[in-house]
Design a protein around this nucleic acid. Structure first.
Lengths: 224, 224
DNA sequence: AGAATGCCTTAACAATTTGATAATACAGTA
DNA sequence: TACTGTATTATCAAATTGTTAAGGCATTCT
């Protein structure tokens, strides 16, 4: 489906760690585990996970302290964080959320609920690194350089494919011509004015589908 | 976003409705209430809230059914949704999250937890959608170069869009003609006196909405 | 190697949209 | 009324994009 999302879990109880790891891995996530806050911080810096699940009660640093430290790192400022806690203590839960977490779950862990919540959180995030993008009947596979529309494979040339991939990576967003040139052609290469148009035309022709909209004087955008 | 966040609550129990309304209003949110799913759908289309809180168990449409209908409306596709339920039924909770909700809370409602979660959701959303400006029923999306009024997309030409964006960036502020020229046309270009008027007229015509006020001898301002 | 194929770019021209202006009508005010 | 500033409309020039064809280049095939 997509390049697997990385999830870091920190909990001092090996059992819980294993249960969560097993369930998330079964859903296709890439899971990294840490036994305490310090290890979590170290691993987070190293792997830059998409989501961090922190137990609140851990020896050494608590989950909330760990969270605060993680948030000081530029690359981890936006990372999703979920707290786990045995306590159903309202004050702790509120402090957890206030410290910049995105959710708070109380033990006992119900794996299916956890997974649903994880998926709900990811749904809100950008899908930039996805190697397969689907929009309605259109499937773009960046790994095999294939487009499939309603079951039929469509072959695009490299530049055409890269151009479509770029536009489809953020449906609705208008890409300026400069933006497109930098992303697809690079900053070094200089090509003529009509080059983009011609490629756009070929894509529209091959797909035979009205999914690229011209915004005159601005650029192009992808939308179904 | 500038204006206070709008939250729509749907629950058939007046007590719960009142408790939630009171607590959210105390935090500065603008709260709208509905007694059932149908009313929620109607009010949602009318007010385009930023967050919708749905009770799962309601007479008539359930919260999940309501959610699914809401999601079919273009302007409500991305709206945050939280479910409330007395049931601590795992299956229902999972189905709720799968139907596109962002969180699921079980009753009894703990107001402070609810508020924390609401704030956490808005905090996460803000990082993504900074290019979208809302004023009442009017949504200006700088990323897709689209104006949306009461669910309908309106296409403005570049200059028209930039002009409206500028005025709407500070509702109530009167922009002098010079100010507008510098911001939209730049200091290099020199255009005639009537140019701004003509563009203003086109915007008014396309939006068919009285949101730009002429301040004679001074300039223009945006207000609903 | 030589031929064939397909990709990328460019040039030239057509089609379209946008932006600016001028001319005129209108509104408010002293 | 005369004056000042804005609204409206039509028109034309300019800017932008669409389309097509052709040539260079690289890759693949025989």
């Amino acid at each position: 489906m997509s390049s697997p999302k990385k999830i870091l879990i920190a909990d001092d109880e090996p059992d819980i760690l294993e249960i969560i790891q097993f369930n998330l891995a079964a859903e296709g996530f890439e899971v990294i585990t840490a036994k305490n806050g310090d290890e979590a911080i170290e691993l987070a810096k190293k792997h830059l996970p998409d989501l961090i699940i922190l137990d609140v009660m851990m020896p050494g640093k608590t989950g909330i302290e760990t969270c605060n430290i993680l948030r000081t790192h530029p690359a981890l400022k936006e990372t999703l964080i979920i707290f786990l806690s045995a306590l159903s203590d309202e004050g702790t839960e509120i402090r957890g959320l206030e410290s910049g977490a995105d959710d708070y779950l109380t033990k006992p862990i119900r794996p299916k609920i956890l997974i649903s919540k994880v998926i709900a959180l990811f749904r809100r995030l950008k899908k930039e690194n996805e190697s397969i993008v689907k929009h309605g009947d259109l499937i773009i596979n960046k790994e095999s350089y294939l487009i499939n529309y309603k079951g039929d494979d469509i072959i695009l040339a490299r530049k055409e494919f890269e151009l479509l991939s770029l536009l489809a990576s953020k449906p609705g967003k208008v890409f300026l011509r400069n933006e497109i040139l930098n992303q697809v052609w690079g900053t070094e290469v200089i090509v003529g004015d009509r080059t983009i148009d011609v490629h756009i035309r070929k894509i529209r022709q091959k797909l035979n589908l009205d999914c690229i909209t011209t915004v005159k004087g601005v650029g192009y955008k992808f939308e179904l």
